[in-house]
Design a protein around this nucleic acid. Structure first.
Lengths: 194, 194
DNA sequence: CGCGGGTTTGATGATGCTCAAGCCCGGTGG
DNA sequence: CCACCGGGCTTGAGCATCATCAAACCCGCG
């Protein structure tokens, strides 16, 4: 049941069998149907979730109310609005499932307990945030410096399974282009040899 | 001498006078002239620095070798390539001074000592990374969803002192537009009232 | 006085948006 | 079994934004 998440945190720290149990006992498993909104703007994020199964996305609304997708998250990823979760302040983000999903949840209380009991988990969460930061830095540079077409190719290269799982207009809102333009990009790529 | 940095970390944790001393004893002060490169691509980042005085920027090169500014950092900011610093892997980034600067430096060794001796500093660094992450998220959304003109206005609103301190083409490379276009943006804003 | 880094200006063209229409396809009800 | 419906994808015309290139300009400084 918990092999995946154990393997996930074991990339950063070594944990004993006893610690494993303490950790997994703190988790609550949540089964969430497709198209469920887990967090919306103005709410305070009460979870930090590990995705055992499924697909979610995090997004926000721009000035004109248009959705901008911050990230897609699939199996073996963590998802949360960490700023809202940490400081218990209202979020500016939305998190929703795109498929039926199973998520292991830490709440502020259980995360606190975990860090009290096994302080080396600090390292896990710091690494997760840092990894996030690096990814986001790369994406910013990509967004600034490359054409939409290049970003599309990069996306399907780095996340080859996601285009098969989510609607194309979500990818558009991730790449920062209109859904129509993703369509023309695909057409051009298809004609130009593949 | 160390009032500023003490005040900075005190936003996140309370520290005793003894802890203050332990902390500041670990810092080495570095005086760096303008236009000095502190980190370049391929090197391993050996510092996490608090800026006591001066102005720096972090940037990387895109596919075509064009500079993309990731951030400007002035008094009371921290700067490092945290991914390279943490994992001791080669950096993809550059960090350079734009003015004569004074920086308080933690090395991997002294940071390690600090966290061993006063574990609550874990919190400080986690908060710094998280704050970075939120800022970067906002900027990504801005870059995707707003026009260059809006981003320029946002920039001078959020960082009013920076345009006075750095050349305009650095700001262009931060906003993700050509230096010429920043010029036309300014002209338009100047004519349209304001 | 001339030099050099930084900024401005203008012409031309690519990139990507908006709007409007049509298409494809799976699901649902008659 | 078929007709219809609706969500998602495609297509195309016209337009805004922004890049590129080349030239001129500004100003502090040796």
């Amino acid at each position: 049941m918990f092999e995946n998440i154990i393997k996930n945190v074991s990339r950063f720290i070594n944990i004993s069998t006893g610690e494993e149990k303490f950790f997994t006992d703190l988790l609550t498993c949540q089964t969430v149907p497709k198209k469920t909104v887990l967090l919306r703007e103005g709410e305070i994020c009460q979870f930090e979730g590990y995705i055992q199964k499924g697909c979610l996305r995090m997004y926000c609304l721009d000035d004109k109310g248009v959705e901008v997708t911050i990230l897609f998250a699939i199996e073996d990823w963590w998802i949360s609005d960490i700023a809202s979760f940490q400081d218990q302040v209202p979020s500016k983000l939305y998190i929703e499932t795109l498929e039926d999903s199973e998520i292991y949840i830490l709440t502020p209380a259980t995360k606190e307990k975990l860090l009290q009991e096994i302080p080396k988990f600090e390292r896990v969460f710091r690494m997760l945030v840092q990894r996030n930061l690096s990814t986001l830095q790369n994406r910013l540079v990509s967004t600034i410096a490359r054409t939409a077409s290049d970003r599309y190719l990069e996306f399907i290269r780095v996340y080859p399974t996601i285009p098969q799982r989510v609607a194309q207009y979500y990818i558009a809102s991730y790449l920062g282009v209109s859904k129509e333009f993703v369509s023309t990009i695909r057409k051009r790529l298809a004609s130009k040899g593949k």
